[in-house]
């Protein structure tokens, strides 16, 4: 019988859960070190894109390697305080 290695429990993940997170309300001058420090705690990061113009500043896309890590990040980081700003962390649809 193939051993089923189900990490982090075998809960079924809702459809909107995915590995790409859309983050808003970031400080405009946040550094790569800070971004990887805040988001890297929850799992391996595949890529981060940060907003650079007046419409996208303060927002970012954070892509995790593993869908469970992305879910953990959303569960923990929504409302996280960075430089007196509360992060908004959503699944990117």
């Amino acid at each position: 019988m193939a051993t089923i290695s189900l990490r982090k429990g075998n809960t079924r993940l809702p459809p909107e859960v995915n590995r790409i997170l859309y983050v808003r309300n970031l400080p405009f001058n946040i550094s790569s070190e800070e971004m990887y420090d805040i988001f890297g705690k929850y799992g391996a990061i595949r890529q981060i894109r940060i907003g650079t113009n007046k419409d996208t500043r303060g927002t970012a896309f954070v892509v995790y390697e593993d869908i469970y890590d992305a879910k953990t990040a959303v569960d923990h980081l929504s409302g996280f305080n960075v430089a007196n700003r509360y992060l908004i962390v959503l699944y990117y649809q």
């Binding site: 790409i20 070190e33 990887y36 981060i48 894109r49 940060i50 996208t56 896309f61």
Partner: peptide, 19 residues
């Protein structure tokens, strides 16, 4: 999947070690 316009890919800091 992700937009290019107005976004820049962050280079991971040299000290970054994926857990």
């Amino acid at each position: 999947i992700l937009p290019h316009e107005g976004y820049r890919i962050l280079d991971p800091p040299t000290s970054y070690v994926p857990i």
